[in-house]
Design a protein around this nucleic acid. Structure first.
Lengths: 105, 105
DNA sequence: ATTGACTGCAACTTGATGGTTGCATGTCAA
DNA sequence: TTGACATGCAACCATCAAGTTGCAGTCAAT
């Protein structure tokens, strides 16, 4: 049950602005410029966020003519979610076992 | 499918040191001082991390005599994981639908 | 060919955060 | 009651990250 690369993904998901971006991309692919039109931050700020999200595999660039659209990768988010779930379950299992021993005489 | 308080929890999970702490707590409750004995950071630093983790509900303090032990809350981590999974699945579902429309004429 | 729009890179500012040390407080136990 | 150990609070430092502006490079369309 290796933690491995989990922290960077969580760090990427720890920013509200990035959730706003992900949420927007969830309704369809979009470029940094297009997103900058809807959100109250500069295009460059959005580009940085997209780079972070791409780095951890939550988003994927797709060239369309001269612009670069970004696509959200739901399956990767689900993968991360499953790993977190497994860790949480493991903690509960272990603590239950400890409690068992403590009570059981 | 509200995002709500998801970002703060993810931000808390975005730090390697906090994962080390959580991992240690996963093997049994421990106080800040006890953790400081095993980890290469000061007790105060650990106390701050525990405060962050407690803030987002990943950890719970338990007074034992004069010391304060912390217990990891696996079920809460699993809750978060399920919410993330649902969001990822929703993204995939929507993009599949869009693709369907684009192809299916 | 030129113009306009989109991308990419770089420098800078600023606020948040992880870390430290020092000291005060509190509480168990001999 | 007094000493030892644990917590809590505060100040401080350094680094990182989010955001900005500005400019250069590309590519499509007129």
């Amino acid at each position: 049950m290796t933690i491995g690369t989990l922290a960077p993904v969580c760090a990427a998901l720890g920013d509200e602005t990035r959730w706003t971006i992900l949420s927007a991309l969830g309704e369809g692919d979009a470029s940094a410029s297009a997103l900058a039109g809807r959100l109250p931050v500069s295009r460059q700020a959005i580009a940085k966020h997209l780079a972070v999200l791409q780095e951890v595999g939550l988003v994927e660039p797709v060239r369309v003519g001269r612009e670069v659209q970004y696509r959200v990768l739901g399956s990767h988010l689900s993968d991360v979610a499953h790993r977190l779930d497994a860790i949480g379950a493991e903690w509960d299992r272990r603590l239950a076992a400890i409690k068992e021993i403590a009570e059981g005489l």
